[in-house]
Design a protein around this nucleic acid. Sequence first.
DNA 1: GCGGGTAATGTTCGTTTGAACACGTTTACT
DNA 2: AGTAAACGTGTTCAAACGAACATTACCCGC
Lengths: 208, 208
Amino acid sequence: MLTGRQKDILSFIQTEQRDKGVTPSTREIQRHFGFASQTSVMQYLDALERKGFLGRHARKARALITPVQKIRITDIPIYGQIPAGMSALTEQDVEGHVSLDSSTVNASKNGRTFALRVRGDSMIEAHILDGDIVILEDRKDAQSGDIVAALIDGETTLKRYVMDHGRPYLKAENPLFPNLIPARELRIQGVMVSLVRKQLSRARRKRG
Amino acid sequence: MLTGRQKDILSFIQTEQRDKGVTPSTREIQRHFGFASQTSVMQYLDALERKGFLGRHARKARALITPVQKIRITDIPIYGQIPAGMSALTEQDVEGHVSLDSSTVNASKNGRTFALRVRGDSMIEAHILDGDIVILEDRKDAQSGDIVAALIDGETTLKRYVMDHGRPYLKAENPLFPNLIPARELRIQGVMVSLVRKQLSRARRKRG
DNA sequence: GCGGGTAATGTTCGTTTGAACACGTTTACT
DNA sequence: AGTAAACGTGTTCAAACGAACATTACCCGC
């Protein structure tokens, strides 16, 4: 699709963007490739834009838009504990961040997306391990079978939401853990949409 | 840490960056906030830079660097099949991409990072499911216990690499699958460093 | 050998843009 | 009352920058 030279130009723009944080100007591209004129650069930019590998804002400086930029990155906060529901999402409770493209997370526009670090093995039969980062979406319309984060006795727990004859309860995916039947209210904080596991390297692992 | 107004400016810059793909110029910021002078903007930029919320390239146009940009995003190609080892990584075999910040992947500088979509349940006891995206690093120094992608009979498989009395073999984490003892050569293509699971929504799921 | 896409040069134009200077105003804390 | 910091105006300058025009050369299929 692209000429060898066109690929070079595009990859230079992307590399610069990554390293410097800013797309290069036509003159910078010119200098890097040893062109005697900017027009050469302009021709390449035209070609790249025509072929859809580049976006441009006319008459603006350094206004190239590379495919890398087009990827929608969602910056998801990881909460250690959510005490009082989604209303009190303070920076205080943030343990860290995960950033990933919104296409791999099924992130919808309306609901807020957040993450929890899993503690314990209560969901091990759903193949969710201690230390996993579970990404959830702030939705109230959980369906039976969904894995949800819910507020029980002031603690946030990750369980499978099951509707049994019109009565919902929280099912632990581990026979060693009890299911939770809510006394009155079941407060769902989010529905699991994705999971990220950081594989520990051999050195940091306890057992093989 | 930041003044209310300073936060406004910063958030405007970030929003613009996201929507347009380019950081706004001082004049654009000026216009948006209704300042009669650019100097106001300059003062805010100075403050934001001083407090570490912004990076700047002196004397360059639209050369603001927001915290969002500073996150190192790794764009990882997902391969359906790796036929002949890491040398022949053509765009042909790319099934898609995952983008996530290099801090959650244990991405080292030297090795190339790539991903595979898992097929089958042979690693289910290592809690890796059919459809999961496994992120690997192109390393040759696999240690016993590491989960690796290896080339067996022209097919790439994901197995646990086990060294047994100086003899390596590939262990399936599912009693229904056989372990693979290499006839002569064991070609390791990568070592698993991370995992991403896209939770299917209720509608697209076959069984609860 | 003719046309058309690609590649490159040399030059000029007008705007966009960051930066600086001098000065005025409000807010908040001592 | 004093003062420092944040906030704001008005103006000017030089550099950075995108864009355009005319011109030349190469390569490849027909």
